[in-house]
Deep mutational scan, measured.
Amino acid sequence: TTYKLILNGKTLKGETTTEAVDAETAERVFKEYAKKNGVDGEWTYDDATKTFTSTE
């Protein structure tokens, strides 16, 4: 399943996707990605669109 991440950081904005077996796995991948890029925001998830959003 393809999951999408929308980053709305103070210094980094953008989108990326990952293939994962479930939302929990995708969330771990995306949170590590955000951390590596210095984004520490509030997380939301929309199951209908398989989209995570992190907003600082």
Rank of each mutant, 00 (worst) to 15 (best):
V29H: 12
D22G: 03
W43S: 00
T49Q: 06
G41Y: 06
D46T: 04
E24N: 09
T51D: 00
T1D: 11
D46K: 02
T17M: 09
R28A: 12
T18H: 08
T2A: 06
T16G: 04
G38F: 06
K4C: 08
A20I: 02
G38E: 05
K50E: 02
D22R: 03
D47K: 09
A20Y: 02
F52A: 00
A34Q: 02
E56F: 09
F30Q: 00
I6L: 06
E19C: 15
G38T: 03
V39A: 05
T25E: 14
A23R: 14
L12A: 09
D47P: 14
L5F: 08
E15Y: 14
D47F: 09
N37S: 10
F30N: 00
E32V: 08
Y33M: 04
K31Y: 06
T11S: 11
T51N: 01
D40V: 13
K36I: 12
A48L: 11
T49F: 04
V21P: 15
K36E: 11
T18W: 09
G14F: 15
E24R: 11
Y33F: 11
K36D: 10
G41K: 02
T53P: 00
T2S: 08
K13I: 10
D22W: 03
Y45D: 00
V21R: 12
A23P: 11
T25A: 13
T51P: 00
T55C: 06
A20R: 02
E15W: 14
K31C: 06
V21W: 12
T1L: 09
T53D: 01
T49S: 11
E24D: 11
E32C: 09
A20Q: 07
F30M: 02
E19D: 10
W43A: 01
I6M: 05
T17H: 09
G38L: 05
S54T: 15
A48Q: 11
Y45T: 00
T53I: 09
T51M: 03
N37D: 03
S54V: 15
G9Q: 04
T1H: 13
N37R: 13
G38S: 05
A26V: 02
G38R: 06
T11Y: 14
K35M: 12
K13Y: 13
F52E: 00
D46N: 10
W43P: 01
W43M: 07
K10A: 12
T25M: 11
E56Q: 08
E24C: 13
G41A: 05
N8E: 08
T1Q: 12
G41E: 04
D22P: 01
Y33P: 00
K50F: 08
T16D: 03
T18R: 04
G9H: 14
E15L: 09
V21N: 12
L5W: 05
N37I: 14
K10C: 14
T25N: 07
E32M: 09
T18Y: 14
L5I: 03
L12Y: 15
K35V: 09
L7R: 00
V21K: 13
W43G: 00
K10V: 13
K50V: 02
S54F: 15
E32I: 09
T44H: 11
K13D: 05
D46G: 01
E24K: 13
Y45C: 01
L7V: 07
T49W: 03
Y3Q: 02
D22C: 06
Y3L: 02
K50D: 01
I6Y: 06
V29R: 10
E42F: 13
E56R: 04
W43R: 00
